[in-house]
Computed example of a mutant assay.
Amino acid sequence: MVSYLFRRLVVAFCVCIAVSMLSFGLMFMAGDPSIAIAGQGGSAADAEAVRAAYGFDRPFLVQYLDWIGSALLGDFGQSIYFHIPVTEIIGNRLPVTLQLGALSFGLALVLAVPLGIAAALKPNGLVDRLALVLAVTGQAVPSFWLGLMAIVVFGVWYGLVPISGADTWRGYILPVVVLTYSALPAMMRITRSGMIDVLAADYIRTAYAKGLPLRIVVLRHALRNAVLPLVSLAAVQLGILLSGSIVIESVFALNGLGRLAWESLLRADLPVVQAIILILSLVYVVLTTASDLLNAMLDPRIRGAR
């Protein structure tokens, strides 16, 4: 286990280095950032002044090392648009995204696992068919359309919940439901397929032959092996919910990190964009590494794989 842990941490470290370089260099790939900051009405002299003020005239490697060194200390520079530290802006917006993503992920996981198990126990049964309908519609319906329909029906027509903002907990109801419905199908289907494969294994038939009740066979023997692919998928889904909620945050007027990223791109606020890309990318790396380690704990065969 120690050897496996060391290998995974080395890989994660290398990925973090690559991600940080891409995060920093991404803004330069689209062109000269000094021109974007100077604006459409800016002259060549204005662009040159911006280039000198922000250090864009230095070698790329020097700029990167200076940026990543400050980022490791929690300093991502100042926002070009707001003229305040980037960490302060992200700190104000991050709680909304974290709450939205965590609530949606938790609700999707709580619903997906029981539905997937129930569908696998009786393939082609009523629950399985209902789960299939839920999965197909959840993957086919765009989240922004579902969000708009939810606003019209539950917010405008019936006035049950707020249609925008997150001043109270009721403001999270509609966006959490929409995000949950988008994340639910993939986790439910992989739970179902994994359970069907495991329930057909010889050791499961042996467990039934020994007289073990269905609850013990499913939860103690089958689910542990069937959940391995779900762990990896859940890590990806959580990363998507945390970083890909820009559409939902825009539809429901939530001041989260996704909406901040979109606004910063429109304003050419490069320090904010770079910080958001780096933070969300590192979240993906941490989640996928944690899922690999959890799978290794659940399945000893993974720890011995080379």
Results as ranks from 00 to 15, higher is better:
Val2Ile: 11
Leu5Asp: 01
Val10Phe: 03
Phe13Thr: 08
Phe13Arg: 00
Cys16Pro: 00
Ala18Glu: 00
Ala18Gln: 02
Ser20Gln: 04
Met21Pro: 07
Leu26His: 01
Ala30Ser: 13
Ile35Thr: 10
Ala36His: 01
Gly39Val: 06
Gly41Trp: 04
Gly42Gln: 14
Gly42Ser: 14
Ala44Asp: 12
Ala53Thr: 15
Tyr54Cys: 02
Gly55Trp: 15
Phe56His: 12
Phe56Gln: 12
Pro59Tyr: 07
Pro59Lys: 09
Phe60Ala: 08
Tyr64Ala: 12
Tyr64Leu: 11
Tyr64Phe: 14
Ser70Arg: 15
Leu73Phe: 11
Asp75Asn: 15
Asp75Ala: 13
Phe76Cys: 13
Ile80Pro: 13
Ile84Lys: 06
Val86Trp: 06
Thr87Gly: 15
Ile89Pro: 04
Ile89Gly: 04
Gly91Tyr: 05
Gly91Thr: 08
Asn92Ala: 15
Leu100Pro: 06
Leu100Gly: 10
Phe105Ala: 13
Gly106Asn: 11
Gly106Cys: 11
Ala108Asn: 01
Leu109Val: 15
Val110Trp: 13
Val110Met: 12
Ala112Tyr: 12
Ala112Gln: 11
Pro114Glu: 01
Leu115Phe: 06
Leu115Thr: 12
Gly116Leu: 07
Pro123Ser: 02
Leu126Arg: 08
Val127Trp: 03
Asp128Phe: 05
Asp128Ile: 11
Leu130Phe: 08
Ala131Asp: 02
Leu132Gly: 13
Ala135Leu: 13
Val136Asp: 07
Val141Pro: 00
Pro142Lys: 07
Trp145Pro: 09
Leu146Gly: 01
Met149Asn: 03
Met149Ile: 08
Met149Val: 09
Val153Gln: 14
Phe154Cys: 15
Gly155Ala: 15
Val156Pro: 11
Tyr158Met: 10
Tyr158Ile: 08
Leu160Met: 11
Val161Ala: 13
Asp167His: 07
Asp167Phe: 05
Gly171Pro: 07
Ile173Arg: 05
Ile173Cys: 04
Leu174Phe: 07
Pro175Trp: 08
Val177Met: 03
Ser182Cys: 05
Ala183Asp: 07
Leu184Thr: 00
Leu184His: 00
Pro185Gln: 09
Met188Cys: 15
Ile190Arg: 02
Gly194Phe: 11
Ile196Ser: 05
Ile196Arg: 10
Val198Pro: 09
Val198Asn: 09
Ala201Thr: 06
Asp202Arg: 14
Thr206Gly: 02
Lys210Ser: 10
Pro213Cys: 02
Leu214Pro: 00
Leu214Lys: 15
Arg215Gly: 01
Val217Cys: 04
Leu219Phe: 15
Arg220Ala: 12
Ala222Leu: 03
Ala222Pro: 05
Ala222Met: 04
Ala222Trp: 03
Leu223Tyr: 12
Pro229Asn: 13
Val231Asn: 01
Ala234Gln: 00
Val236Leu: 12
Gln237Gly: 12
Gln237Glu: 10
Gln237Arg: 13
Leu238Arg: 08
Ser245Pro: 13
Ile246Cys: 04
Ser250Asp: 10
Asn255Ser: 14
Arg259Tyr: 09
Trp262Cys: 01
Ser264Asn: 07
Arg267Pro: 07
Asp269Trp: 08
Gln274Tyr: 14
Ile276Val: 14
Leu278Arg: 04
Ile279Asn: 10
Leu280Lys: 02
Ser281Glu: 03
Ser281Tyr: 06
Val283Pro: 05
Val283Ile: 10
Val285Asp: 15
Thr288Gly: 06
Ala290Gln: 02
Ser291Met: 02
Leu293Ser: 00
Leu294Val: 03
Asn295Leu: 01
Asn295Trp: 00
Leu298Gly: 00
Pro300Gln: 02
Arg303Gln: 05
Gly304His: 07
